[in-house]
């Protein structure tokens, strides 16, 4: 018998009688209007920043003012970031992103309770981009903030993706005596624009 069949046989023999799954309905929150405040407060507490803007031109202006674009490699698949960042066509060669300083990416939605933003593969030029870049900017529609992870997974329950990730703040570690250091292996900073 193959290992697969041996394991499955043992599982079948040893698993207890069927237990029912719990209902999760009670965890869904009624729509709140403080989602922007909550999201901003939580993401700030875990090292990220949030800026509310009226439209996307404000984003461009902010980036021009705060990042030395002339000297760094910035990448964005967003059409309206042209002139600020290079359009990066996926070439299936993630190593070419080694020297990216700034990536500006759209996110599908954000989660208020934990400051996370959801990005699936369709929004990423390369899976590694939000990690390998030194600094990350995400752009989320302010109407797309969900209260908790329950609403988040409800939203993507039927989505098909090859890869997707929740990103909540900059890369961090506290492995050395529990001292928090931002910028472990992924992006050193995370800025979220709410449009």
């Amino acid at each position: 018998m193959s290992s697969r069949d041996q394991i499955l046989t043992a599982v079948k023999a040893n698993q207890p009688p069927l237990m029912t799954l719990p209902a999760l309905d009670s965890f869904f929150e009624s729509p709140k209007n403080e989602l922007i405040i909550k999201f901003t407060q939580v993401l700030s507490s875990i090292g990220g920043s949030v800026i509310e803007v009226e439209d996307e031109t404000e984003i461009g202006a902010f980036i021009r003012e705060h990042y030395p674009l002339a000297n760094i490699r910035a990448i964005s698949p967003l059409a309206n970031m042209q002139g600020i960042a290079d359009r990066y066509e996926a070439e299936n060669n993630p190593h070419k992103l080694e020297n990216v300083e700034l990536a500006i990416l759209p996110a599908h939605f954000a989660v208020a309770e934990n400051g996370a933003c959801w990005l699936s593969e369709t929004l990423l030029a390369e899976r590694v981009l939000p990690f390998i870049t030194q600094h990350l900017i995400l752009v989320v529609n302010k109407n797309d903030i969900l209260p908790t992870m329950h609403e988040a997974y409800q939203k993507i329950s039927d989505e098909t993706y090859g890869y997707g990730t929740f990103i909540a703040g900059p890369s961090k570690t506290a492995d050395i005596e529990q001292s928090l250091v931002l910028g472990a292996h992924g992006a050193r900073s995370l800025l979220v624009f709410l449009v």
Partner: peptide, 12 residues
């Protein structure tokens, strides 16, 4: 923490 920084879903 409210969630880990990255929660990555690998399907393909």
């Amino acid at each position: 923490q409210p969630i880990t920084t990255y929660s990555s879903h690998f399907a393909k």
